[in-house]
């Protein structure tokens, strides 16, 4: 029995015909950049949304600083702050601003920090690609669907004129910054949400769910929509001044309200005394738009970037 299972596996391996990896276009691999002699460790943890951003930054930083060992964890925004305020990490990734109670916790433990706004994201409300009735929802309509105790379970209840189609909801798990931000922006109170929806920390589950249900609706960061354009449709959001579609431009200009959100990295002030941490943050602010693009976020506007750089200078001098 076992032998036949092994043979089966071997046969499968031989017959395996998966998609090949694309050939690598090694941008900049040819030129050798001057390498610094910085060394040491930088520990980052926190939001799984911001994780890819810090990873992208760490990857690029490593090209010129091969001896600085940067690690990135994804404990979630809340979990990240818990470790950060315990003094365990140098950097905390966050997809929302730090809460008052987290600030108080850090204070109690004597951890001082600097906040860096490092990119923007457009929280995108998505529906099934076959959904041809809804193109734009107002914030009030979204609130009607998502507020605590909401009994809306059919599209026809959202707006008169929508066909009767069972509404299937998919959203972020309660540990994520995405959940906090969405509930705050739509329902007016952080953490207030109906609870009878499929909650997941894995946005790909939401993609699967919404693309598999004609009446599906879900929300997540713009990058997950960008990667699944064929399977999903993004709704325009009317925050009171007309319908605006989520995009890099509308998120940067601030037109896409209230669902465009800032993403943060919090840095421990004490860690700034270590040259490798200072150099890493400096590197991020220097290559901000490049990193944001690689991680599929919306880069900062010139004004925001200027502000972040000023904050950096204040913290280092």
């Amino acid at each position: 029995m076992r032998a036949s299972a092994l043979t089966l596996l071997a046969a499968l391996a031989l017959a395996g015909c998966g998609s090949e990896r694309e050939s690598v276009d090694d941008g900049g691999g040819g030129e050798t950049t001057a390498q610094s002699d910085l060394s040491g460790r930088v520990e980052a943890d926190g939001s799984s949304t911001v994780g890819p951003y810090t990873t992208a930054a760490a990857e690029r930083f490593r090209e010129t600083n091969p001896d600085v060992r940067i690690t990135v964890g994804v404990s979630g925004t809340g979990g990240g702050f818990e470790r950060f305020c315990a003094g365990e990490t140098d950097l905390s990734n966050a997809s929302r601003a730090i809460k008052d109670e987290e600030r108080a916790l850090c204070e109690r433990k004597g951890v001082e920090f600097v906040e860096f706004h490092i990119a923007n994201d457009a929280l995108t409300v998505v529906v099934n690609a076959e959904n041809d009735w809804a193109t734009c929802l107002t914030v009030d309509e979204l609130k009607k669907v998502w507020e605590p105790g909401s009994k809306v379970d059919d599209w026809s209840q959202i707006r008169a004129g929508f066909p009767s189609e069972r509404l299937r909801l998919f959203g972020a798990g309660t540990d994520s910054g995405t959940f906090d931000y969405f509930t705050d922006a739509i329902n007016g109170e952080e953490g207030a949400s109906r609870s009878d929806y499929s909650a997941t920390e894995d946005d790909n589950v939401t993609v699967e769910g919404v693309s598999g249900n004609r009446g599906g609706m879900g929300y997540f960061g713009l990058s997950y929509f960008e990667q699944n354009r064929e399977a999903l449709k993004a709704l325009e959001i009317d925050g009171g001044e007309g319908c605006v579609a989520p995009s890099v431009e509308t998120a940067q200009s601030g037109e896409y309200t209230p669902l465009s959100r800032p993403l943060f990295i919090y840095a421990k002030t004490e860690s700034f005394q270590r040259p490798e941490v200072e150099a890493f943050i400096g590197f991020i602010l220097e290559h901000e738009s490049e990193i944001a693009e690689a991680a599929q976020f919306v880069p900062l506007t010139d004004e925001q970037l200027e502000q972040a750089r000023t904050g950096f200078e204040d913290a280092t001098t």
């Binding site: 499968l12 391996a13 395996g16 015909c17 998966g18 090949e20 990896r21 690689a294 991680a295």
Partner: peptide, 19 residues
């Protein structure tokens, strides 16, 4: 196996994770 076989290559064993 059919999904991943094309990606079992040298890079998988020699490179660090990347974005």
């Amino acid at each position: 196996v059919s999904t991943g076989w094309g990606y079992v290559d040298g890079t998988l064993f020699t490179s660090p994770p990347s974005i």
